[in-house]
């Protein structure tokens, strides 16, 4: 069971309180109705599914109920950081060498 830091509760809490909500930073178009088939496919279906660092969304479902973003290594399942929904993708990751 993972231990996840909720950026709103400001502490690490057990995974049982959370629900994963898929890849982060996939913006819904402001002009949704006008999207092309390809763009819609990218938006709704295509996922980066990285082996390594993933930017993903979680919801502290059974805690503060907030959605937030996390950076995690999908090989070790270790969290690099978490940050609030709406905040931009971090330019630099703590402890990252590259």
């Amino acid at each position: 069971m993972l231990l996840i830091r909720c950026p709103y509760c400001e502490e690490e809490r057990p995974e049982l309180e959370f629900r994963n909500a898929g890849e982060a930073h996939i913006a819904r178009s402001a002009n949704m109705a006008g999207e092309s088939d390809d763009d819609f496919e990218k938006f709704f279906f295509i996922r980066s599914n990285p082996k390594g660092i993933i930017y993903e969304r979680w919801r502290h479902m059974h805690g503060c109920a907030r959605f937030f973003n996390a950076v995690r290594d999908t090989v070790t399942d270790k969290f690099v950081m978490t940050y609030k929904a709406g905040e931009p993708k971090p330019a630099k990751l703590p402890g990252a060498s590259k």
């Binding site: 629900r19 909500a21 819904r28 969304r57 919801r59 479902m61 109920a65 907030r66 959605f67 929904a85 709406g86």
Partner: peptide
């Protein structure tokens, strides 16, 4: 409820 919260919090905050 989850679906509505998701849109409210992340798409239409």
């Amino acid at each position: 409820m989850n679906h509505m919260e998701d849109y409210l919090q992340t798409e239409f905050p």
